[in-house]
Amino acid sequence: MPHTNTTSFQDTPHRQGTREERPSDDGAIRLQKLLAQAGFGSRRKCEELITEGRVEVDGELVTQLGTRVNPRSQKVRVDGSRVRLDGRHVTLALNKPRKVLSTMDDPKGRFTLRDIVGDKYERIFHMGRLDYDSEGLILMTNDGELSQHVMHPKYEVAKTYIATIDGHIGGNVCHRLVTQGVQLEDGHISFDRCAIIDSNRDTTIVKVVLHSGRNRIVRRVFAAVGFPVRRLVRTQIGPIRLGDVKPGAYRVLSATEVRSLSKEVGL
Rank of each mutant, 00 (worst) to 15 (best):
P153E: 11
V208R: 00
R201N: 06
R214A: 11
I169K: 02
N215I: 07
T203Q: 13
E145H: 11
I189A: 06
K154W: 13
L184V: 10
V178R: 14
T204A: 06
T203N: 11
K207N: 11
Q148N: 14
E156T: 13
E145Y: 06
L210H: 03
G167D: 12
V173P: 00
D198Q: 10
R214Y: 12
D198I: 03
Y161I: 02
E145R: 13
L139I: 14
H152E: 02
I169D: 02
R201V: 11
D166N: 14
I165V: 15
R216W: 05
R219Y: 03
D202L: 12
Q148C: 10
V182Q: 07
K207P: 05
D192F: 10
K154I: 15
R193K: 15
R219C: 01
S190T: 09
S199G: 07
A158D: 09
R219Q: 08
E145P: 01
G171I: 05
G167L: 11
L184F: 14
M151A: 08
S147C: 13
H188P: 05
V150I: 12
H152M: 03
Q183D: 15
G213S: 09
G213I: 04
C174G: 09
T160S: 06
P153T: 08
E156S: 15
D143Q: 08
I165G: 07
V218I: 09
S199K: 08
C194A: 10
I217K: 03
H152I: 01
M151S: 08
G144M: 11
G170Q: 00
I169C: 08
A158P: 00
I189K: 01
F191R: 11
Q180H: 14
D143T: 01
H175M: 09
E156I: 00
S212L: 07
D198A: 14
I197T: 03
N142G: 01
I217L: 03
I197G: 02
V178P: 04
G171W: 03
G187T: 11
D186A: 05
D166M: 10
H211E: 00
A163Y: 00
D143K: 06
S212R: 05
D192V: 14
S212V: 06
R216N: 04
S147P: 05
V208G: 04
N142E: 00
R214S: 11
T164A: 08
H149R: 15
Q148V: 07
M140T: 07
D186H: 01
H168D: 15
G181T: 10
D186C: 05
G144D: 13
N172T: 14
L139Q: 09
V157R: 09
V157G: 10
E156P: 00
I217C: 01
H152Q: 01
G187H: 10
V218S: 00
M151P: 05
I189E: 06
H188W: 15
